[in-house]
């Protein structure tokens, strides 16, 4: 099937893979910075999602931003590409799930008590759509990328 193989060829091409790594890695590096600097605010945002009990939100608030940063840096640098893209894709899936759950049960994630930035007031469905868009380069790397040194 020439169409299928040419699509596969395009998706696994070096330039598209590099673009996906730079975009996905860059987004997560950027996203991690503010959270690394303000773990307390991030903990409150996590608590606001009402998925974890309040006394358990500190650990993810401290660790998640570093995982985002690490995986982002690895992706940009081309180290452990698939593993990094897998982590970020899993995180994105989890964020989508968390946003979706709260959108469905009607919890206002942008509750004024906790919002620290204007972005918090965005509609949850828009945020989910944005996460799905960001997920695309992740999946392209996971399914069509190759780690350096991997054989066919």
């Amino acid at each position: 099937m020439p169409l299928k193989s040419s699509l596969r060829g395009m998706l696994s091409s070096a330039w598209l893979q590099a673009l996906c790594r730079l975009v996905l890695g860059g987004i997560f590096i950027y996203a991690s910075l503010d959270k690394i600097v303000h773990p307390g605010e991030f903990a409150r945002i996590i608590a606001n999602y009402a998925i974890l009990p309040d006394h358990l939100v500190t650990l993810p608030a401290l660790v998640l931003p570093w995982l985002e940063m690490l995986a982002g840096l690895f992706l940009v640098a081309g180290i452990w590409r698939r593993s990094s893209a897998l982590w970020l894709s899993l995180l994105l899936l989890f964020f989508i799930l968390a946003l979706g759950v709260n959108a469905l049960r009607g919890i206002d994630v942008s509750c004024g008590c906790f919002s620290t930035s204007a972005a918090d007031t965005e509609n949850a469905w828009i945020l989910i759509f944005r996460d799905l868009l960001i997920l695309i380069p992740g999946l392209i790397i996971v399914f069509f990328g190759r780690d350096r040194g991997d054989r066919d």
Binding site: H55, L59, A61, L67, W80
Partner: peptide, 25 residues
């Protein structure tokens, strides 16, 4: 990567001027 993040996160909290209590928000 997860283990490194745990170390970095807890380490950063440990040296932070305003560390968060781990089991309480």
């Amino acid at each position: 990567m997860a283990a490194a993040s745990v170390v970095l996160g807890l380490g950063a909290n440990f040296v932070s001027r305003e560390p968060l209590p781990l089991w309480r928000q």
